[in-house]
């Protein structure tokens, strides 16, 4: 922690030189100095591997109706199905193996989280840097829109957007991009404003590089640390939001795997004490989101960008 990140000097902007390499390795070492962050990284890696390999390692394809047998419905964890296979986490009302459904559901969660955050980060920071670079009315207008967007809670915006779009993984991703872009726009603009007046930007200008070139080769790398920290937190947020929207019946369609929907389908059984359909997918969700948040918290400490408040 502390001032591990040196102020970017004119020499080290843009390209990664040997100095940058050692800085990076220092930061990596600092990151793993925290046991919680290390554990979170290991857990998240396992989740990613498990979700990626789900079709290969899951006992069952839980969204292939041909593989489901209603006779196996609502079996408790530890029970065996008709073929005497052990059901570690039980089954839902359609005889779907919960463990398999979790692995497949995590695929959707990670896909939605990573893609929506990635696109929102790129689009939002581009908008923010452009606003900072041009300044004046463009900047003022953009920031007004950002403030307006951030003043309305994300769940509300996403829900209303999906009410208009209809259900679908692609639509959830689109809604989450619209919900998120403003965070990056604000952070990137803040970082870019700080960098804009520094000498090396002047130097680049006098070399008559085009405006766009200056912005994306010089400003973006320096705006990166705060963006990484926000993006990590936002991936976790997006995953939770997707699950929430699907739980409310506005997100992923029934034919696709989703942890939120799985949890919703166990809702009625919960009241009669058949807890597993709602409980285990939720635990998986919490572990995934918690691991990402722990990593994000550590990244914030290591990169130590004075986040735009």
């Amino acid at each position: 922690m502390g001032e591990t990140r040196a102020n970017p000097a004119p020499a080290d902007s843009g390209t990664i030189n040997s100095d940058g390499q050692s800085l990076l390795s220092l930061q990596v070492a600092a990151f793993f100095a925290s046991p919680a962050a290390t554990l979170a990284t290991v857990v998240l890696t396992l989740i990613i591997v498990g979700a990626t390999l789900a079709p290969l390692i899951a006992p069952q394809h839980p969204y292939d109706l041909a593989q489901l047998d209603i006779m196996n419905g609502m079996l408790a964890p530890g029970a065996r199905d008709g073929d005497n296979r052990l059901l570690l986490l039980g089954t839902d009302e359609q005889g779907r193996d919960i463990l398999s459904a979790i692995l497949f559901g995590l695929r959707t969660s990670l896909l939605v989280g990573v893609v929506s955050t990635g696109v929102a980060c790129l689009a939002g920071s581009a908008i923010g840097i452009l606003a900072a670079y041009f300044g004046g009315r463009i900047d003022a207008l953009t920031m007004r829109i950002v403030d307006l967007q951030l003043s309305v809670p994300s769940i509300l915006v996403a829900l209303v957007l999906l009410a208009a779009f209809g259900r679908g993984v692609d639509k959830v991703i689109l809604a989450l991009i619209i919900v998120q872009w403003a965070y990056y726009a604000r952070a990137a603009r803040g970082a870019a404003l700080v960098e804009r007046n520094k000498e090396y930007i002047e130097a680049a200008r006098s070399l008559e590089l085009s405006n766009l070139q200056i912005m994306f080769t010089h400003l973006l790398p320096n705006a990166l640390p705060p963006l990484i920290v926000i993006a990590t937190a936002q991936i976790a947020h997006a995953i939770a939001l997707e699950a929430t929207l699907s739980f409310l019946g506005a997100g992923v369609p029934v034919t696709e795997p989703s942890l939120g929907m799985l949890i919703a389908s166990g809702y009625n059984y919960l009241l009669s004490g058949q807890y597993w359909v709602s409980t285990y997918p939720g635990i998986a969700l919490v572990i995934a989101v918690g691991a990402i948040n722990l990593m994000g918290d550590r990244l914030r400490d290591v990169l130590n960008p004075r986040l735009a408040n």
């Binding site: 949890i263 009669s272 919490v286």
Partner: peptide
């Protein structure tokens, strides 16, 4: 940090499970 990570809807279900069921 973990509190930030608990999705509100699932946390609600767990509260129901614990305190009501």
């Amino acid at each position: 940090i973990l509190g930030f990570s608990l999705p509100s809807f699932w946390q609600g279900l767990m509260l129901i499970l614990l305190f009501a069921v």
